[in-house]
Amino acid sequence: MVAIIKYNAGNVQSVQYALQRIGVDSIVTDDKAAIEGADKIIFPGVGHAYAAMQYLRERQLDQLIVSLKQPVLGICLGLQLMCKHSEEGNTDCLGIFDEQVKLFPTSSSADQKIPQIGWNNIYDYHSILFSGISENEFVYTVHSYYAALGAATIATTDYILPYSAALEKDNFHAVQFHPEKSGKVGEQILKNFINIS
């Protein structure tokens, strides 16, 4: 069973539907025992870093997440919250990854707007999360803040500058883009996560 962590940020329903399409049962829950007892955990999120961290702390979900031993997949804001610190609301985050989360700098090119909304390429993979995915595949992404490149970077995207499209450390994996909205490529990435043993 996969547990999708329920919190006040964003549309968790889409993640559950995406798992359903690849034949995987999941529950959306903020119950600690249910999260700890799940085989795999997805930590999604769209929204504001400060508000989301506050919500997690109030429910001690912050301590729970960092203590998890089973495979965890952060998505979008989930990735950013798993980093050390975010410039969004000057927020101290979970610190699973050492990478810093920053606001995109203003681009000199008028067509590079903030937030980045749409389909962009991922490349330079260093994880089984991307097994079977060709270099430069397109994924759907929506964000104004990005995790800088660092030791945990396992995939890169270029937008204004190169940033971490995905991060990984031990049992913790995270993607900045939305695999649940990224067509067949996203489905494959979710399958790869589910197949991690």
Binding site: G118, W119, Y123, S134, N136, T157, Y159
Partner: peptide
């Protein structure tokens, strides 16, 4: 070589028009 499988898809990187 990424350009081998699908030359149309691989002209550099960046946000696509939708």
């Amino acid at each position: 070589d990424p350009s081998f499988s699908n030359p149309l898809n691989r002209s550099g990187r960046g946000l696509a028009k939708r």
